[in-house]
């Protein structure tokens, strides 16, 4: 979605307003860092000083002695690997969040809309997946598929869709009995059309907030799996595996510190962004809302974000 467009145009009566919370320092800092990392992720391979796998520099040289952030045990430039690592981790993290959101929203929407045994079956499946500790389940999936970055993404999708399913289901459950939705049905809309036209717009906002908050968790999960050897395989420049490799050279602090800081900044930036977005769509912060458009506003949008996350 285009945050920047929403920020400048501020469409009246739209589902998403970006009121003054959006101008909070944290939101601005978060957006700035996130955008910076996205730019790096897209462009890094074009401008890093050394190829990320080139073993051409002196081994274990500290930052400032010929290279910006030092070199690792094989004489590879830490800065180049760090920047290239962004283009490995961030797109995959975004992709995995989108995939989990899509799967979760579909499952949740179907469960909430149709109810009955469909709801029961899908929600018990959701509960089943949520009952497992996230990282442990992801490790099991990644290990059984075989260690690779893409399998790690699959593993992460498997463990992260249920929260979207739950949120979507609770929203749909509240929305489907509202008058305008019922009216739409009475006008002859099919269940699917009704779901897409009347209900979906009110679900998207909270899900986007949840997804934004989840990007940080996805980066952490992917790096964690790589750290454990279940994600990126050497010599791929990936933040988690860079930290893992740094363990063998603990006193060469620069090898592990900078990837750690990279993960920290990305996770924090997306959390700030997500918080700001949540404030933006939270109805309690919309004091300026007029009676116009109430019918299309989310009535019972409560984000069970924190409570529902394992």
């Amino acid at each position: 979605m285009s945050l920047d467009g929403a920020l400048t145009r501020r469409p009246r009566g739209a589902w998403l307003r970006l009121p003054r919370v959006w101008r909070s320092p944290l939101a601005v800092v978060g957006a700035a860092i996130a955008v910076a990392w996205l730019v790096v992720a897209v462009s890094a391979p074009a401008w890093v000083p050394y190829p990320p796998d080139a073993q051409q520099l002196p081994r274990l040289s500290p930052p400032g002695e010929g290279t910006l952030l030092g070199t690792d045990a094989l004489g590879r430039d830490v800065f180049s690997r760090l920047m290239t690592g962004a283009s490995t981790t961030i797109p995959l993290a975004l992709g995995l969040v989108v995939a989990s959101a899509v799967i979760g929203v579909v499952v949740g929407a179907v469960a909430g809309w149709f109810g009955g045994w469909v709801d029961e079956a899908l929600m018990r499946l959701t509960d089943l997946v949520m009952a497992f500790p996230t990282v442990i389940l992801a490790m099991v999936v990644a290990a059984s598929l075989g260690p690779s970055l893409y399998n790690a993404v699959i593993a992460a999708v498997v463990v992260s869709w249920p929260q979207y399913a739950r949120v979507t289901r609770s929203l749909v459950l509240g929305l489907r009995t509202l008058n305008y939705v019922v009216a739409g049905r009475l006008l002859g809309r099919s269940p699917v059309t009704s779901l897409v036209v009347d209900v979906a717009p009110n679900v998207v906002g909270p899900v986007v907030v949840l997804a934004t908050l989840d990007v940080g968790a996805a980066v952490l999960l992917l790096s964690g799996l790589s750290f454990l050897g279940l994600g990126a395989q050497p010599p791929t420049a990936e933040w988690g595996s860079m930290i893992s490799g740094a363990l063998a050279n603990f006193d060469a602090w620069w090898i592990g510190t900078f990837p750690g800081l990279a993960i920290l900044t990305v996770v924090m930036a997306f959390n700030f962004l997500g918080d700001a977005l949540r404030d933006a769509v939270d109805p309690t912060s919309r004091t300026e809302r007029t009676a116009v458009g109430v019918a299309s506003a989310p009535q019972s949008v409560e984000l069970p974000v924190e409570e529902d996350r394992p």
């Binding site: 796998d53 073993q55 094989l74 050497p234 490799g245 063998a248």
Partner: peptide, 8 residues
């Protein structure tokens, strides 16, 4: 360590 050796 085998990993750096294998990488080289």
């Amino acid at each position: 360590e085998f990993t750096p050796l294998a990488e080289r």
